[in-house]
């Protein structure tokens, strides 16, 4: 790792002031991606501004939504009684990220800001129409995810919390890569008052996306059999050493069926 400086401001405003001191500074959330990439010199920074002190880790729930602070760790979402009772699919998703030691550090805000194309959280955010709240504005899920490792966040913008509307039902199933445990394909299905949303992570060349083919089939009839005849095109899916596009297309259907089986 190149030499750098470290600071841990005690508020979001102080963190913004701190990061503006250098054009090469980066925010540090849980660090489960950033520190290993800095070590490998795949990225660099002359200063890390740790958001741990900025009071951003909390979970609250109302009758219609769950609000999760950006520095809330995966382990805390997975074990939160509020999340377990009102949106258990999200607790299960958080409890399946990485391993238990990674979940003790990694955060929802860090995961979303990184927008790894194989990360789990983006699928829940997109399927549930969550809103990303930052120190500057509110961003819809649809606008937030721009492409692989790319988001709508401005240079010094900080995610402060994520608001998840509570659906009627939801389920998330992933097919982990046997080595890395990242999702080769992960499918999040949400049944909401205004219809069914299906978001797919791990498969798309540009990261997470909504799968309209499966959504249409489920909106006409919400059962496992209704997606039997759905054709998923391998176009635009990752065609890589670990899985071809057509294999991933098949996994999307298979994971969707498994998710539906949990919901019906």
């Amino acid at each position: 790792m190149y030499e750098l400086e470290y600071s841990m401001p005690s508020s979001v405003n102080d963190a913004v002031a701190e990061i503006k001191k250098s054009s090469e500074a980066k925010y540090l959330a849980g660090g489960m991606t950033l520190i290993p990439t800095l070590k490998a010199r795949l990225s660099s920074a002359d200063m890390l501004v740790d958001l741990k002190g900025a009071n951003l880790s909390n979970v609250s729930v109302s009758s219609s939504e769950i609000v999760i602070g950006s520095m809330t760790r995966h382990c805390d979402v997975a074990s939160s009684s509020e999340v377990l009772s009102s949106l258990p699919a999200l607790a299960k998703l958080a409890g399946g990220i990485g391993d238990h030691m990674v979940r003790n550090c990694g955060t929802i805000g860090g995961s979303l800001a990184n927008n790894d194309p194989a990360a789990c959280y983006p699928s829940a955010v997109l399927a549930l129409d969550a809103t990303i709240i930052t120190n500057e504005r509110a961003i819809t899920a649809e606008d937030f995810f721009v492409g692989m490792f790319e988001t709508a966040l401005n240079e010094n913008e900080i995610i402060t919390e994520v608001k998840f509307p509570i659906p009627e039902k939801a389920s998330y199933i992933k097919f982990p890569n046997p080595a890395s445990r990242y999702a080769m394909v992960g499918v999040f299905i949400a049944k909401k008052a205004n219809g069914v949303a299906v978001a797919v992570t791990g498969a798309g060349e540009n990261g997470v996306f909504r799968c309209s083919e499966i959504e249409n089939a489920l909106n006409s009839s919400f059962n496992v059999g209704s997606i039997d005849n759905v054709e998923i095109s391998p176009d635009g899916l990752n065609n890589a050493i670990h899985a071809s596009g057509s294999y991933r297309a098949n996994l999307i259907k298979e994971m969707a069926k498994r998710a539906l089986n949990e919901m019906i």
Binding site: G31, M32, I35, P36, K39, L48, M101, N104
Partner: peptide, 29 residues
């Protein structure tokens, strides 16, 4: 591994098991 996958560096930090090769000493102040 030094790529935070193998877990040989596991320690307890404030009561939680973590991978110490993926954390800066500064973060543990």
């Amino acid at each position: 591994c030094d790529t935070s996958q193998c877990g040989a560096c596991a320690i307890h930090l404030n009561g939680d098991a973590v991978k110490s090769c993926a954390i800066l000493a500064a973060q543990a102040d």
